[in-house]
């Protein structure tokens, strides 16, 4: 068993190096496919960063009547914080709200004088609530409506922002769906290109397969070396695709940064390099090995 296995590995490695151009062509096609798959992974990182960035800009605020005691507001804050959907709750007291208001309008003399003339603070305390995802605001709003102290609310911004939030939810859903379909289609296309290349390479070796079978080689011994060749092509293609992708990502990074300033695609690339190589290896090795396995099958009858 070990002898057969070691011979399969040996034939596969020898075949890979001695095949020359067909092997190089297979590796080249695999490199292209792997660069596409790397591009898809990075595209998904880009779209999810874009979605996160937009989602981060959304929040809803609940304003409390001025008569509402602060400890009651803090209790609502606490209960909201226990929600899994809630990412962050910020309490803005009426004094802080006034401070912010003053700061915002410090250059507007009329507004500043009007505020100074007031005897009391007219601004209401508020809770600014951020959810993890845009589609979670409706649930939070529902809770706020049904809570026992809802009569203390002066109002929420959810109703006002509902249309915008819903539109964003639709956009996010479509981007995610589109990204998934695109990923699936391109991955399938990349897989088919590799399969076809391997099929052509094995087609050119059909005489060799016939000879192997005519001298009594078992199916495993005929198929095994080609699968090994496919796997070796996959591994080599992964190394090359990572070496080619790195400078490409480095060059493209500033352009992505213009669109999403908080996204550093190159940083993502090198901090996730092991994971990316892992994905590439799975794709390259599986597609290389499987393509060879499938391509040889038709020559193993009789």
């Amino acid at each position: 068993m070990f002898t057969v296995f070691s011979r399969i590995i040996n034939y596969g490695l020898n075949g890979f190096w001695r095949n020359g151009w067909p092997s190089a062509a297979t590796v080249a096609m695999m490199v292209l496919s792997l660069i596409v798959s790397m591009g898809l992974i990075l595209f998904n990182v880009f779209t999810s960063s874009a979605v996160d960035s937009i989602q981060d800009k959304i929040d809803i605020a609940v304003y409390f009547k001025t008569s509402t005691p602060e400890d009651e507001i803090l209790r609502v804050k606490q209960s909201l914080e226990s929600f899994p959907e809630v990412k962050e709750v910020e309490y803005i007291s009426s004094a802080q709200a006034l401070e912010i208001f003053r700061e915002r309008h410090k250059d507007d003399v009329t507004i500043r004088q009007a505020v100074d003339e007031l005897n009391s603070n007219p601004l209401q305390a508020a809770l600014n609530i951020k959810a993890h995802r845009a589609d979670q605001y409706e649930k939070i709003d529902e809770y706020l409506k049904n809570t026992s102290i809802s009569q203390s609310f002066a109002g929420t911004t959810y109703f006002r922002n509902k249309d915008v939030i819903n539109r964003l939810i639709t956009i996010i859903t479509n981007v995610n769906r589109g990204g998934f379909v695109l990923t699936l289609m391109l991955a399938l296309l990349a897989g088919l290109v590799v399969l076809n290349t391997v099929r052509l390479a094995i087609y050119s070796n059909r005489e060799e397969i016939f000879v192997m079978r005519s001298v009594g080689a078992s199916n495993a011994l005929v198929r095994g070396p080609y699968v090994v060749e496919g796997v070796v092509s996959g591994i080599l293609a992964v190394v090359l695709s990572v070496l080619i992708s790195a400078p490409m990502v480095y060059i493209a990074n500033p352009f992505f940064k213009v669109l999403i300033p908080e996204l550093d695609l190159f940083r993502y690339f090198y901090t996730h390099i092991i994971l990316l190589i892992g994905y590439q290896l799975i794709f390259g090795v599986v597609i290389g090995g499987l393509s060879s396995f499938i391509a040889v099958r038709r020559y193993l009858k009789n």
Binding site: R7, M212, G216, A217, S218
Partner: peptide
């Protein structure tokens, strides 16, 4: 119908290896 990627020795040895 010799295996083109194997030497004469390897072609002959192949029948024994299989």
């Amino acid at each position: 119908r010799l295996l083109p990627n194997k030497t004469a020795y390897e072609n002959v040895a192949f029948a024994l290896e299989v």
